[in-house]
Design a protein around this nucleic acid. Structure first.
Lengths: 153, 153
DNA sequence: CTGACTGCAAACCCTTTGCACTAAA
DNA sequence: TTTAGTGCAAAGGGTTTGCAGTCAG
């Protein structure tokens, strides 16, 4: 993790920005938390270490972290931004439980390969992609909510 | 399309709701427009037919359309809701151009199959999923913006 | 008639921004 | 000292909701 922190510092220096203690706290907590966090969740965690930090700083720092390539934005369809760090994580897809909200990270090389072929067929130049599968995780699947037998697809 | 309109009417009747002319106008325009529309785009189109329709009605009707299974929500990461209709459309993925914003619909059975296997391996019970690939479409790829050679991964 | 539908505008939620003060370099 | 960083609160942008009038059944 030291590595990532150094990387962030270099990133800031290069952009003639400053490496402050608040940015460090936010980055550290962001990196060490293995969860897909919304800004307010990160804010709550960060407040425990430095109660003076404001919401705006969390947002602004998250933006910098993203620019530095240490985090990426994910979207779980709940109307908020969510972020995951790229520290010790390669590209992966998500299985998102619509009951408990947890997101499992999964990877499948064969799917990636087929995606590459797919974009090639369409002469599309990909920059990034995301695959998200929504449903019930194995814990929640034991008792899925049933109302009218609703069936999606 | 007549079929879908009938389906919507039945859906409303079954829920003891009313089939109104405004709902009909909104549904018709939604179905006949082959684009991924945000509520405000649909609102603009709908206003041309019935200038008295309000924003709220568009939102509320879109929600009903979704419930009726005639539309689904998609997310192109631009901070707004977007909808596509399910009329004469099977499941598909999206290639979204980050320059011009157009979304190409694509389908690949082998990817779908691998996804099924993937969730099975994780004992995950899928309800729906989405695959979105962001990048440059073949028209925009001729002159992609280059700044610092940014590389996502 | 009854109860759902509607437009309007205000409320909401999350995110961003302007300002005056603070802290890196 | 110089310039960026910061908290606060207000502003923004998109979406939802409460209300009183309207309309379908």
């Amino acid at each position: 993790m030291k590595n990532e922190i150094k990387l962030f510092e270099d990133f800031l220096v290069q952009k003639e920005l400053k490496y402050t203690s608040r940015r460090e706290i936010i980055l550290e907590i962001f990196l060490k938390t293995e969860r897909h966090m919304s800004p307010d969740e990160l804010y709550d965690l960060v407040k425990k270490k430095d109660s003076g930090i404001g919401f705006a700083t969390v947002y602004r720092t998250l933006k910098l972290i993203k620019e530095a390539g240490l985090g990426r934005e994910v979207d779980f369809g709940d109307g908020k931004k969510r972020f995951e760090h790229c520290f010790e994580h390669k590209h992966h897809d998500h299985l998102i439980c619509i009951k408990c909200g947890k997101a499992l990270e999964v990877a499948d090389d064969r799917i990636e390969k087929l995606q590459e072929a797919l974009v090639k067929r369409h002469k599309f130049n990909p920059v990034h992609h995301r695959l998200e599968i929504f449903g019930y995780c194995k814990d929640c699947d034991k008792k899925p909510p049933r109302q009218g037998g609703g069936q999606g697809g």
